[in-house]
Write a protein that binds this DNA or RNA. Structure first.
Lengths: 337, 337
DNA sequence: TTGAAAGCGCTAACAT
DNA sequence: ATGTTAGCGCTTTCAA
């Protein structure tokens, strides 16, 4: 293995000079620099990054805590994280937590064990709750997408409440008054905020909420499919359904059609996220487009700011959404209902 | 920061004893073990993993080279990798390469720079081509999914040729003879093998191949959509289309229906991969189910075997596929064609 | 501008 | 069974 020592010998300089040439080329004379670089080349020298990290007490590794990668939306967020991290010469340690808090805590320990500098958490949970972290220093974490209410760190999220509200307002404008909702996991802030937006819109329109039209789901197509069955065959069939994710909406679409009903003629359906498949479903989905990659990029930018002792400009970012109207929603057909 | 030295003082033993207690508890007496563990607890000691890695010359980090995470299939493979790595106390460094060879080489350099122990490559390219690696030692790499023809390392793949063949045989059994194909990227071994399987089946049935029915795609729904347009409006419309990925099949489905044609009554469609959305498309897709997570798990197992100087039992694994018949294929309707 | 030298926190001979 | 000690490869004072 070629070490810095061998390069130093080859170039006829000290190891300190080699180190300096590599880190801050401008503090050595052009002549030495040339000599050293030539020796590096000749020796086929590759620095031992672990030694560098050990000595400099920084790894440039970022831990990413994601409930599940096999979800189109998270996959896009991770793409954004990876891209931004790479650009700044940071690495991404990917951790699939399945939403389990003990495993999130275990992964966060990579920071206290100095194997990574910080964590990007995509769930509303603080994995450092019980850990011995140098007090005084800011928490080496950024919370994105699903965000804690009183996050002890910078956050990036969507205004889920008003996004949901605008989706429902769109349905109300089309004449719908009996609007069902397929929700996300019960305890998620995402669900809470989107339900609030749903209520906001209905309240503003003077529509009284029918709690039997609000069913739980878990963001998977399967759960959308199952919840839709209940809605479709229930005593009080809605004329429109708000699904808290496109994946659930795609499941719902299938179930509704299986019941011999048409989307949007019998039932309008709206989703959330605007995943790639949302425009290829039948019919294409009206949904909320989220800047998934941007969540990742912003989270990285803020985390690195924290790690490098810069104050992030804003510590609680709210990214913009967009209502995308496609063919899964239409005006209510009085003849049919 | 609490170091092993402080724990040693607290426990009244040497640092070596602390180290031993943590690594191989059975070589110290129960009494010392108890003392040490108590001191560890009292001091809130967290070992500095970078120091451990530095000293032991092993990181237990695995680099994963993936063309794009935002692809449902790769996302599942990565899930499998992460799960298996975690189980064996290895970490996953995720690298999105966009299929660029220079960036794959840059990431592979993490191994020569001792930041990771090995790489799992999901594309048919050897990123170590030009690097100074200790000769004699086996290449610290496993190639999975899309595999090099003469891979210099263990591999895990599907028998793409016979999988494609069985898909086409299914169509032929339904009476189809004019079968189009929407291919993957031109230079990919995946494409080559699947095209070979397609030819095998047609040749065996005595059907002469119409090259104008074979169109290029890039695995995205959009490319499936566009290629389908050409097939549908071409002079010699096929009665069935084989898409080399479910994502392209979903794009094709939409385009075919837009042309006022029915799937499967006018055109049968088959995909490849069996992604989650394949059973929620309209109609649900007939496809080849691949054990995506298993690719990841097997790749990890073989890589760790190589890294820990064990010979992997088999170095070229071929995982089984399954033909999944859903509603996107049916017997050819003579009245319509 | 360059070199000498200390030492980051830990493991693993080797000695006891 | 435990302790002593020599580094792993690098960065960074400090001195020249």
């Amino acid at each position: 293995m070629t070490t810095i020592r061998k390069v130093a010998e080859l170039a006829g300089v000290s190891v300190a000079t080699v180190s300096r040439t590599l880190k801050s080329p401008d503090v050595v004379t052009p002549a030495t620099r040339a000599k050293v670089l030539e020796a590096v080349e000749a020796a086929g020298y590759e620095p031992n990054m672990i030694a560098v990290q050990f000595r400099s007490r920084r790894t440039r590794n970022l831990v990413v805590l994601v409930p599940t990668i096999a979800n189109t939306f998270f996959a896009r967020v991770i793409s954004g994280i990876q891209e931004a991290a790479h650009q700044r010469d940071y690495r991404v340690l990917l951790c699939n937590t399945l939403g389990r808090e003990d495993s999130e805590e275990a992964y966060a320990r990579m920071v206290t064990r100095r194997q990574a500098d910080g964590v990007i958490q995509l769930r509303a949970y603080n994995p450092f709750s019980g850990s011995h972290l140098p007090t005084g220093a800011p928490l080496p974490m950024v919370n994105a997408c699903e965000v804690l209410d009183n996050a002890p760190c910078p956050t990036v999220k969507l205004d889920n409440r008003s996004a949901a509200r605008s989706l429902i307002e769109h349905l109300i404008a089309l004449g719908h008054r009996r609007i069902g909702m397929i929700k996300g996991p019960r305890r998620s802030p995402l669900t809470r905020d989107r339900v609030a937006g749903y209520r906001d819109a209905l309240d503003a329109a003077g529509i009284v909420i029918d709690e039997t039209l609000m069913l739980p789901g878990d963001f998977t197509p399967k759960s959308g499919f199952e919840a839709a069955a209940l809605l479709v065959h229930g005593p009080n069939r809605p004329t429109a359904i708000f699904c808290e994710s496109d994946e659930m909406a795609i499941g719902a679409l299938q179930r509704i059609k299986q019941a011999g009903l048409s989307v949007p003629d019998d039932i309008s359906v709206v989703g959330f996220d605007d995943i790639a498949f949302a425009s290829y479903s039948d019919p294409p989905l009206t949904t909320i487009s989220q800047p998934a990659e941007a969540f990742g990029r912003e989270a990285v930018a803020m985390l690195i700011d924290v790690l490098e002792d810069r104050m992030p400009e804003t510590s609680h970012l709210v990214l913009p959404y967009e209502l995308v109207i496609r063919e899964s929603t239409t005006t209510i057909d009085v003849a049919r209902h």
